[in-house]
């Protein structure tokens, strides 16, 4: 099978305007993936499916990943010349930058015809709030239908071109997306008192202690 780099070069040659990036995977599994841009994603998917040398005819697994915004603190050592004329000093400089959050959809492709795979495709949304659309690959592989609905349901990614984009595991009136990492559980179910501190605290919050009986009022006739 072609390596990911070879595949990227082949795709870039075939789709000159497209942006295809290799995302390398440092783990021993060495399953590297390809990040696609939205505009060419479906064309590339169709090409991967139909090209006789590739024939990735089955999209086995579709899933979402939530990457929230994170603050990265980097410490770099900078050599600063001493204004007094002494030898230059090495000063540690701390820079903080915010890496914007995004949602990612991952597709695992296999070829049943040529018995090869996996090729991993990734699509990223612009952010986690309003630019959460990615092109749907359901028209290319039917197996994406339910799995993209699941990603929509649990992560809140909207798939453009999906034939039936509804919630699938949560009920229709549900508001949030539970698989996001900043999801807060709603406090609308029965908290069972257990000896655990955090559960107990939640249960106490849920069932506020009844105000002490007001004997003064009762005493009054």
């Amino acid at each position: 099978m072609e390596t990911v780099e070879q595949l990227r070069d082949r795709l870039l040659a075939r789709f000159p305007g497209a942006s295809v990036t290799v995302i390398s995977n440092p783990s021993p599994s060495a399953q590297h993936s390809l990040l696609l841009d939205h505009a060419h994603a479906r064309e590339i998917a169709l090409y991967l499916r139909d090209e006789p040398a590739l024939k990735f005819d089955q999209c086995s697994n579709v899933t979402g990943i939530d990457w929230p915004e994170k603050e990265i603190t980097e410490t770099t050592k900078v050599t600063v010349p001493d204004p007094a004329g002494g030898p230059p000093k090495v000063v540690a400089q701390t820079t903080k930058r915010r890496e914007p959050g995004y949602l990612e959809v991952v597709y695992h492709l296999y070829s049943l015809a040529l018995r090869q795979g996996p090729i991993i495709l990734r699509l990223r949304t612009g952010n986690r709030a309003d630019a959460v659309a990615v092109p749907s690959l359901t028209p290319v592989w039917r197996s994406c239908e339910f799995q993209e609905r699941e990603v929509f349901d649990l992560f809140g990614v909207t798939f453009e071109g999906h034939p039936d984009l509804r919630r699938i595991l949560m009920w229709d009136g549900f508001k949030d997306h539970p698989m996001r990492r900043d999801y807060a559980e709603p406090d609308d179910y029965e908290w069972e008192p257990t000896p655990h501190g955090d559960v107990l605290a939640k249960a106490k919050k849920h069932y506020p202690e009844k105000p002490a009986a007001e004997p003064a009022k009762e005493a009054k006739p």
Partner: peptide, 24 residues
């Protein structure tokens, strides 16, 4: 604590391909 990275492992379960996709 596995090192950072990701892996997709699958086997032929009795009902079909059961796979786990993990990111560390």
């Amino acid at each position: 604590r596995p090192k950072a990275g990701e892996a997709y492992g699958r086997i032929e379960g009795p009902k079909g391909e059961i796979g786990f996709y993990l990111i560390s």
